[in-house]
Computed example of a mutant assay.
Amino acid sequence: MFTGLTRIDHVGIACHDLEDKIAFYESTFGLVVASREVNEAQGVKEAMLHVADGPSGSSYVQLLEPLGPDTPVGKFLAKRGEGVHHVGYGVDDVAAALEAIGAKHVRLLDERPRHGSMGASIAFLHPKDVGGVLTELVQASEDPL
């Protein structure tokens, strides 16, 4: 059963140089890298930087560098430049969330959950149906990295 959004899990930020942006967020805001991954399926190198812990879980800044210009983040950078790429919201059950949100006529970019950062189950909603914001649903892993 979908009980709603539980928190802002992360804000995804597209960047040209992952190492440069990590250094900026570490030195400017004191954030610490919680994980780094290369996600070939999504065409990105990424880093999750821990922001805070709350009653519903942790929140992060996710930095995304494209693996190439023809990837979704590569195309985003070419069109819009560096900046906010998407917002990820925590949910208790991503499959139930997809079913409930899809029933409200919001288009789903993912019909079923897939692998996300730090072992999470994720799915994306179509930005045109969510106020122009690419929206990610995130069910955190029971055993985060």
Rank of each mutant, 00 (worst) to 15 (best):
E99N: 07
D93C: 07
M48C: 02
S58M: 12
G12H: 07
E37K: 02
M118Q: 15
E142I: 07
A120M: 03
V94R: 11
P144Y: 03
A97D: 09
V32F: 12
N39R: 01
E99W: 00
R7K: 12
S141W: 01
Q62P: 00
L98M: 04
R114Q: 13
I8V: 14
G116L: 00
A14L: 09
Q42K: 13
V91E: 14
Y60D: 04
T135L: 09
D70F: 13
G43F: 00
D20V: 11
A140L: 01
F24C: 08
H105F: 07
I8A: 05
P55A: 14
M118A: 15
V130Q: 03
A78V: 07
M1E: 14
P113F: 08
G90P: 08
S56I: 09
L49V: 04
C15G: 10
V11A: 15
V51G: 11
K128W: 01
G116D: 03
D20M: 12
L31A: 08
Y25E: 04
K21V: 12
L125D: 09
H126G: 05
A120R: 02
P72S: 09
A41F: 06
E46G: 07
C15P: 14
E65A: 04
Y89N: 09
E65F: 02
V44P: 02
L5Y: 10
L108G: 03
D143M: 07
G116M: 03
V91P: 12
V51Q: 10
H115C: 08
H10D: 08
R7W: 12
S35Q: 10
S141A: 08
V130R: 01
V11P: 08
S121V: 05
K45F: 01
V51I: 15
D20A: 15
R114D: 11
H105T: 11
F29N: 06
H115I: 09
A14C: 10
T6Y: 06
H115A: 15
